[in-house]
Design a binder for these strands. Structure first.
Lengths: 226, 226
DNA sequence: CGGTGTGAATTCATTCACAGCG
DNA sequence: CGCTGTGAATGAATTCACACCG
C-alpha cells in the first residue's frame, strides 16, 4: 500500500507534470490511462511513474489503469492545489510582468495578492491582467503580508537587490521563496527557497553540447585511425 | 586525481553556481578560497564542494585552498563558457523579452542571434538591449539557423505553440532546447531538452508549505494531548 | 490476460572521516 | 598544522522483474 509518510523529493518534483498531463487528458474527455500512456505523455518511464503514484496510495486498477479524474484530484490534494495560495511578486520588470500574467498560476490556486517594486516610476501601474492589481511600493510589503497573509514570495528583482528583499520577506514572516535572481540567498533554516536560474540552465545545455561535439570528434578520429 | 571522464550530472548542475560565486569573489579581489568558504557562499556542504571539484582535477593546494582566478577559468572551460554560443529565442512575449534583456547571458558566451515570433505586430520591433536585434518572423527560423548556426534554442511561446515550434527547431538541426512553455516536449533522442517551469516550482513550494502546516498541527495536537 | 504495485537489485549522490601533502 | 582529495559508508532514486489482482 502507499506509504503515506514522506513522499520522496524526486517524486514531488514530478507530480506537477503528471497533474498537468492528466488535466489535459481530462479536458479532452479521456477517462482512463495506463501507466505506460501517462508515462509517455509525461516523459518518464512507466516503472518510475508507477513507483511515484504508489507513494500516494493504490489508486489504479489492475488490468485497467488509472481513473483520470480521480487521479487528478488525488495529486492536486497531495500538492496542496485544492487550497488557496496567496503569493506576492517582488520585482516588476519584464520577468515579474511575465509571471504576473502567466495564466498557469491562477488555475492552480495561486493568487497574486501583491506586485511590489522599489522603482517609483512603476508604482501605480496596472501591469497585470489580474483585476485591478496595481504595482505598490516595496515599502508596503509588510502591510501586504499582514493583510493577505501570503506564505510564498516570488523574487524577480535584479541580483543586487535580491538579498535585502529576501531579508525583508523573511522578517515579514513568509516561509517559502521562489528566487529568480542569480544569487544564492541566505535564509534561516525554517525558510524554504527554490531557485530558477536561466543562465545556469543554459550553461548545463552548453556543457552537454560541448561534450557531444568533443565525443563526435573522438569518434571521427578513432574511425579515421581504423 | 580527477577522473576526467564523465562528470556526474549533479555536479554539472552545481558548477554554474560555483562559477558565479567565484567570479564575484574575483571581482572583489579575493585571490584564494577554502572549500569551506566557497561552499558556504554557494549554499552547499564543503564535502560536496570538494568532491565536485575533484571531478575536474586537483586544482587546490592543501593547507591553503583554491586559487580563485585559476578555478574560475577551469570551471568555465569545463562548462564550455570559453566559447561562443549563438542562441535563438522563439516567442517574444514578456518572458522572451525578459530573457533577451538578461545580462547574465552575454557575459557567459551566450549571444542572441535571433528573436523570433509568429505575431506580425511584434515583427520588426526592437525589444532587446542588444544592438539592432529586431524581432523577426518565425518563418525566418530556418534562415537564421543556416546563417548563425546556433545550437541552442530557447522556447518561450505559449503552450499551444511550443511543440510545433520545437519540431521546426529540431528539423532545422538544433540539438539543445531550453523550454519555458508548460508542456512536455517530444524530441528525438539526440536532442537535449531542459525545462523551466514556473508553475511546477510554485507547486513544489506549496507542497512543502502544506506539509509544514500539517506537521505543525500534529505537533500542536500531540503537545495538547500530553 | 493486461497492467498495477512492489520487493530486490542496481545505479547514482551525498556524507563521513582521515591519510597525506604543501 | 590546515585543508585538500578521496576511499569507504551511507542514503536516495531508478530500474528490474514478477507476483497478484480485477
Amino acid at each position: 500500500m502507499g506509504t503515506r509518510r514522506g513522499i520522496p523529493e524526486a517524486t514531488v518534483a514530478r507530480l506537477p507534470v503528471y497533474h498537468r498531463v492528466l488535466t489535459s487528458l481530462n479536458e479532452v474527455g479521456v477517462a482512463t490511462v495506463s501507466s505506460e500512456e501517462l508515462a509517455n505523455a509525461s516523459g518518464v518511464s512507466s516503472a518510475k511513474l508507477r513507483k511515484d503514484l504508489s507513494h500516494l496510495g493504490s489508486y489504479g486498477t489492475r488490468g485497467v489503469g488509472y481513473d483520470v479524474e480521480f487521479l487528478v484530484y488525488q495529486i492536486a490534494r497531495e500538492l496542496g492545489l485544492t487550497q488557496d495560495w496567496p503569493v506576492v511578486i517582488v520585482g516588476v520588470g519584464n520577468l515579474g510582468r511575465a509571471l504576473a500574467n502567466y495564466g498557469g498560476f491562477a488555475s492552480r490556486g495561486f493568487r497574486i495578492v501583491g506586485l511590489l517594486d522599489a522603482d517609483p516610476n512603476l508604482v501605480g501601474k496596472d501591469v497585470a491582467i489580474a483585476p485591478g492589481l496595481r504595482v505598490r511600493h516595496l515599502d508596503e510589503l509588510e502591510r501586504v503580508v499582514r493583510e493577505a497573509e501570503p506564505a510564498i514570495a516570488v523574487i524577480a528583482t535584479p541580483a543586487e537587490a535580491a538579498q535585502s528583499v529576501c531579508d525583508r520577506v523573511v522578517a515579514a514572516g513568509m516561509t517559502s521563496i521562489l528566487n529568480f535572481a542569480p544569487v544564492v540567498l541566505g535564509v534561516p533554516d525554517r525558510v524554504e527557497v527554490r531557485k530558477v536560474d536561466l543562465a545556469t540552465e543554459l550553461q548545463i545545455l552548453a556543457f552537454h553540447e560541448q561534450r557531444r561535439t568533443r565525443d563526435d570528434d573522438l569518434v571521427v578520429s578513432a574511425g579515421g585511425a581504423l
